[in-house]
Computed example of a mutant assay.
Amino acid sequence: MLFAFICTDKPGHLNVRMETRPAHVEHLNKLNAEGTLKIAGPFLDADGKPCGSLVIVKADSIEAAQAIADADPYTKAGLFETVEVKPYNWVFNNPEA
């Protein structure tokens, strides 16, 4: 099953995002190599600067998806104000459909 992580950065935390980005990308590369990661990228503010993230993963349960979200270096660094983990149904342009 797929799960979407809808993450909102804490205001004024762009420096935390940038400092933690190498570890975050390494984490996503590992998930990608395992076949767990499906989509990932930042939300952008009006100035084109990152202000949140959308990550979609494949997991067996919402608990397993939450554990993946909790393991993200951005989460561990305290970047996010909120992280929603929601079941997701990829209908259009899903390469696995």
Results as ranks from 00 to 15, higher is better:
residue 58 K to H: 13
residue 79 L to M: 08
residue 73 P to Y: 00
residue 32 N to V: 06
residue 85 V to F: 01
residue 55 V to C: 14
residue 97 A to F: 00
residue 18 M to E: 15
residue 29 N to V: 07
residue 59 A to R: 04
residue 3 F to T: 04
residue 29 N to E: 15
residue 29 N to H: 13
residue 93 N to P: 05
residue 46 A to F: 06
residue 21 R to C: 10
residue 2 L to H: 13
residue 11 P to Y: 00
residue 13 H to R: 14
residue 61 S to V: 09
residue 7 C to M: 09
residue 78 G to Q: 11
residue 84 E to K: 15
residue 16 V to G: 07
residue 23 A to Y: 03
residue 59 A to E: 08
residue 72 D to C: 09
residue 80 F to Y: 13
residue 6 I to R: 04
residue 28 L to V: 07
residue 27 H to Y: 15
residue 20 T to C: 11
residue 57 V to R: 04
residue 39 I to S: 04
residue 79 L to H: 05
residue 27 H to Q: 03
residue 6 I to Y: 02
residue 85 V to S: 02
residue 65 A to M: 05
residue 29 N to M: 14
residue 31 L to E: 13
residue 58 K to W: 05
residue 24 H to K: 03
residue 38 K to R: 13
residue 52 G to E: 10
residue 89 N to H: 12
residue 87 P to L: 01
residue 90 W to I: 04
residue 90 W to D: 06
residue 8 T to N: 08
residue 38 K to I: 14
residue 22 P to Q: 05
residue 30 K to C: 08
residue 68 I to A: 08
residue 67 A to H: 04
residue 17 R to N: 06
residue 76 K to H: 10
residue 63 E to N: 10
residue 8 T to W: 01
residue 14 L to C: 08
residue 83 V to L: 05
residue 82 T to V: 01
residue 40 A to Y: 03
residue 90 W to H: 08
residue 24 H to W: 07
residue 14 L to Y: 12
residue 77 A to F: 10
residue 97 A to Q: 09
residue 5 F to V: 00
residue 11 P to S: 09
residue 40 A to F: 06
residue 40 A to D: 11
